[in-house]
């Protein structure tokens, strides 16, 4: 039972960490200065969230692991973020489309988690929901601008959406951990989140003149540690100092 609780919070922490890591790759390389600031800021919100969630996960586990031990000393197979978070940043269209798909999910998720029976998690959610509502406004605005901008921006956004869509199912695929958390009033039912997410996303995509892909290719496995081939490279980079100089303080 407490094992499911740990797994649940760890998953949320890993999602935040890995998307924060990806966003931070944009630093100094965005299309203009205001976007450099916005990317760094969004990355920072996710890293901050990851720190709180991983610390909480470590406490739930009770094995003495802190945020850094969880972030830096686990192997790829032990990470349980959804695949959507770990895909390489691609172009600006890909990054913003992914961000929008995640931001809407996070907004509804953290809104619901504000009422979690886990008070620590509810506290984290209260902070995260404010950030997510801001993130969501920003990424939705970009989806509209780029979807309904020039031919080129439309083409790039549609192809980003086509690539990303098959990774969204995994977010809402409930397993035993999700069921246990829902039963204990710790987490909301995923089916309900999916309904809210789909309504928002479909409405915005229509406004942005983009169409939901109709192929049925789906990928999943992140929760069980079956990642894309990009994940190992991401971790090798992120963990390099802790791995090459074990046990030191930085």
């Amino acid at each position: 039972m407490s094992n499911a609780h740990f797994s649940y919070v760890l998953r949320l922490g890993d999602n935040a960490l890995i998307i924060g890591q990806r966003l931070s790759e944009w630093c100094g390389h965005s299309p203009f200065l205001e976007e450099d600031i916005a990317m760094a800021n969004t990355a920072l919100d996710h890293v901050g969230r990851a720190r709180m969630l991983l610390t909480h996960a470590g406490d739930l586990e009770g094995a003495g692991r802190d945020e850094d031990q969880l972030a830096y000393l686990r192997d790829e197979r032990e990470f349980c973020n959804v695949l959507l978070c770990e895909l390489p940043i691609g172009d600006f269209a890909f990054t913003l489309m992914r961000q929008y798909l995640l931001d809407v999910y996070h907004l509804h998720l953290f809104e619901a988690l504000c009422r979690s029976q886990d008070e620590v998690l509810a506290g984290i959610a209260a902070k995260a929901v404010k950030e997510s509502s801001y993130h969501c406004r920003r990424s939705a605005e970009w989806v509209c601008r780029l979807g309904d901008g020039t031919d080129e921006s439309h083409r790039r956004m549609q192809s980003a959406l086509d690539e990303l869509w098959g990774y969204t199912d995994e977010i809402f695929a409930a397993d035993a951990v999700d069921e246990a958390m829902r039963a204990q009033g710790i987490a909301p039912p995923l089916a309900e989140l999916e309904r809210l997410w789909r309504a928002d996303v479909e409405a915005l995509l229509a406004r942005a003149t983009l169409s939901v892909p109709d192929d049925n290719w789906r990928a999943s496995g992140g929760r069980e540690g079956i990642h894309t081939e990009h994940m190992g490279v991401l971790l090798a980079e992120m963990q390099v100092l802790q791995r090459s100089h074990p046990g030191l303080a930085w």
Partner: peptide, 26 residues
Amino acid sequence: WITRAPTLRRKATLLAKVQDEAGHGL
């Protein structure tokens, strides 16, 4: 070094710093 910062606290402060520098530019 942001992607390789050795702790999450260092990663967060470095991100905030680099964000400040872009703000100074503005």
